[in-house]
Amino acid sequence: MKNILEVNHLHKNYGALTAVNKVSFKIEKGNVYGILGPNGSGKSTTLGMVLNVVNPTSGSYKWFDGSMSTHDALKKIGAIIERPNFYPSMNAVQNLKLVCKIKGVAYDRIDETLELVGLLSRKHSPFKTYSLGMKQRLAIASALLNNPEILILDEPTNGLDPQGIRQIRDLIKHIAKSGTTILLASHLLDEVEKVCSHVIVLRQGNMLYQGRVDQMVQNHGSIFLSSQNIAQLRSFLNEKSFVAELIEQDSLLEVKLSSPVTTAQINKEAFEKGIVLTELAFKKQSLEDQFLELTKN
């Protein structure tokens, strides 16, 4: 079983509005996937459709190569959608027992998962007394109860304070390390960049890219330079073949590279031309830059 999820031309209209436009992708076992997109790009709707809570307008999806019905497949996954949904008057253990009953698994992992998310000491407090961070961690515990084949997280750090965000991220990294397939939807790029190997980019319901994170945009990063004589530096750089684009901002020149080049080589050549560099730095293009570039138009 290689494909965990296969999505074919999945489409959703809300009246005249197209929320998701014929999206197709595959989730393979063992990878960590990110679904990226600004707010309202159709991330949650896409997840809602494959999780059986939103009816697709057209298109189809298959869990585990179509070997079982959707609701049976969902028993083998763990998913958290937007905010944590539990019964307010039940405590953590009672809530998790209910999830065990639905998924048809034994209770023996309840304490283990509560320990993992750091809620063991509060396990007998009613859910409504929890802070948002604790609620979100309980949701992760609940998603891990059945040793899921895939963990689906939709905006897991939304609305959390910095400590809460850190705790959740550490948890995700910890889970990813154990080899669990993860699908993480987020509009926070550094979140995706830190944990994901593959990415699916959505904008206004359209899929712009799917594949490995490092191949998302073919480029070699940027070099930032500065000198006393900017004009001379600019004419020097304009002759170079590695320059794809030259941007000037606040007496700093940013060179977008079209082929790899070392800063040492640039420094040497500039010095030979009599240009003394006051600043020279290489910056790998972040996922954020790549994402903005991809979604520019």
Binding site: V53, S69, L74, F86, Y87, I102
Partner: peptide
């Protein structure tokens, strides 16, 4: 109102069940 219906479905209960 608690959106637990949604969570029940995601956890693997079918709408019929």
């Amino acid at each position: 109102s608690n959106r637990t219906l949604k969570q029940n479905l995601i956890d693997g209960l079918s709408k019929k069940e």
